[in-house]
Every structure is written in structure tokens, then in C-alpha cells.
């Protein structure tokens, strides 16, 4: 076993999020102790009270930027990190809390609150890459834990992570799921959504709802037109593209076509 000081140091940082993506690391039950053997888990508050100071070889960042304090904090995280990887839809695309970006903020303020002066919040929820350079973005709400392990291993070996950019449709074919859109007319975002989940929803007889965000060069307009032809109303088209990756450019542009 390597000496503690020689192991590369890993840090896990949390911003506005549900904790699910960093939990994915603790959900690697079969691999966790082996990972801890070759990597120093140096700063991971959800798992350990011990904090070993930076700089860190690899920082995993969960969550989006929503407060003035976090806007400053991400700069400090970047300074301390050789590689910075965002994990999940919040860090990569602003997350579900980016729905506030589409509202007139006055609509929220109108809701009378006991002491709004106690709260400090920005008008938007934004992706980490809007604030600092990011070395790799891992999509998903939540991330796939096998993909998370692949990213950690790849960065520690100085190679590019092997993460596919194609659509969920390919994963349905790989697992022999019959196409729900073609055979049952179930609305499905699979053709425009990035693979990675393993095409779980269609396997459960449910249309993909896009929680891994847009694939590379998605044709959202064509899909939306087809859904409309099959009877989906404008309000539902808007909501379909405006969920966990609402602020990702491709889904954002498509949802705005239905406003």
C-alpha cells in the first residue's frame, strides 16, 4: 500500500444540490475501500470530519451557484484543484433550481415571507462552467455511479474519461427495449437525451424525461414537432424540456420556442 502522502488527493465539494451525486460515490459499496486505498479522500465532509489541506489532484463539484458566497467559493475551489470535474445536472446545467431563471423574480418576492432579509440569494442558478474553467462535465440527475468511477480513474491516470455522447436510443437498442415512441406513442425524450442512465425509464415502460440533459447536437425541434403532431399541447412541451437540465443551451432554446 502506498504511503498516505504519496496518494493523489481527492476533494468533493457541495454547492446548491440534493447530495445525491456525491452520495453516488458512497454508493460504490464494492469499490469504496479499494478506491480509498489508492486515493487520499482528503476533503469530503459528507463522509469524513478530517480535512487535509489542498492543493487537490482532483476536485469533484456537486451543485450549482446560487448565492454570492458560493460565487466566491468556487473560485477558491478552482485555485486549489489540478482537475475540476462537475458531477451531475446541478453543477453541469444549473439543476432543477434553475427553473427560477425563467421566472420573473418578482413572482417569488410577492410571496410574503416572514424575514426575507435573513436570506441571501442570487437571481439565477448557474452551472459551474459559467464561473470557472471546468476540465470535465459528467451529466445526470443523478450521475451514474459507474461513470463516476470511470471519471475518477481516468483523471488519476491522465487520460480522457470514456463517457458516451450519443443518445438514450442507443442504450434502448443495447438492452433490447422495444421503442415506446414507435410502438405505443408514449412521448419520449430519448432521441435528444444523452446516454448514461442505461435507458432505465423505457425499460420501465415510461418515456425518457431527459434527466441526463441534451446529447451532442440534438434535434429537439424535430422531436417537439412530432410530439405536437401526436397531440401534445404547448404547455406540456414547455414543461417537458424545462426540468432538471432546463438551463442547458439546447433544452433552454427548445423550451423557449413553446413559451
Amino acid at each position: 500500500m502506498k504511503e498516505t502522502s504519496q496518494k493523489p488527493k481527492l476533494a468533493v465539494w457541495k454547492f446548491a444540490s440534493c447530495d445525491g451525486c456525491q452520495l453516488s460515490l458512497l454508493n460504490c459499496e464494492d469499490e469504496l475501500l479499494a478506491v480509498a486505498d489508492v486515493i487520499e479522500i482528503a476533503n469530503f465532509p459528507e463522509a469524513s470530519r478530517e480535512v487535509i489541506p489542498g492543493p487537490y489532484e482532483l476536485s469533484l463539484v456537486e451543485g450549482s451557484i446560487t448565492t454570492p458566497h458560493d460565487k466566491a467559493r468556487i473560485q477558491e475551489v478552482r485555485r486549489q484543484s489540478k482537475f475540476l470535474v462537475t458531477i451531475g445536472a446541478c453543477a453541469t446545467a444549473g439543476g432543477i433550481q434553475a427553473l427560477r431563471n425563467f421566472k420573473d423574480v418578482n413572482a417569488f418576492i410577492d410571496i410574503v415571507y416572514a424575514h426575507p432579509d435573513y436570506i441571501s440569494s442570487l437571481a439565477t442558478s448557474s452551472a459551474i462552467a459559467d464561473h470557472v474553467p471546468v476540465d470535465f462535465e459528467l451529466p445526470g440527475c443523478p450521475v451514474n455511479k459507474q461513470q463516476l468511477l470511470e471519471v475518477i480513474i481516468a483523471f488519476l491516470h491522465d487520460r480522457k474519461p470514456n463517457i458516451p455522447h450519443h443518445s438514450v436510443c442507443i442504450e434502448c437498442k443495447q438492452r433490447d427495449t422495444v421503442c415506446l415512441a414507435v410502438t405505443q406513442d408514449i412521448p419520449c425524450l430519448g432521441p435528444v437525451t444523452r446516454a448514461g442512465c442505461g435507458a432505465i425509464c423505457p425499460a420501465f415502460n415510461r418515456g425518457c424525461y431527459g434527466c441526463f440533459g441534451p446529447m451532442e447536437t440534438p434535434n429537439t425541434e424535430s422531436l417537439a414537432d412530432e410530439l405536437r403532431d401526436k397531440g401534445m399541447i404547448t404547455e406540456d412541451l414547455l414543461r417537458l424540456f424545462r426540468t432538471y437540465n432546463a438551463d442547458s443551451p439546447a433544452f433552454k432554446m427548445e423550451s423557449e420556442r413553446h413559451e
Binding site: 454547492f15 446548491a16 446560487t66 427560477r100 417569488f108 436570506i119 442558478s125 424525461y209 426540468t243
Partner: peptide, 21 residues
Amino acid sequence: EPPRFFEGFLRGRKYSEASDI
């Protein structure tokens, strides 16, 4: 922990979306 305002953006969503959101 920064607030995320779920109750704010649940307004206007469909009843069927609440469980996933």
C-alpha cells in the same frame, strides 16, 4: 445550505410531476 425554492417553482407544474421534482 443555499435555499432552492421548490415550493416556488412547483407552482404551474402538473400534479403528475410533483413526485419526480
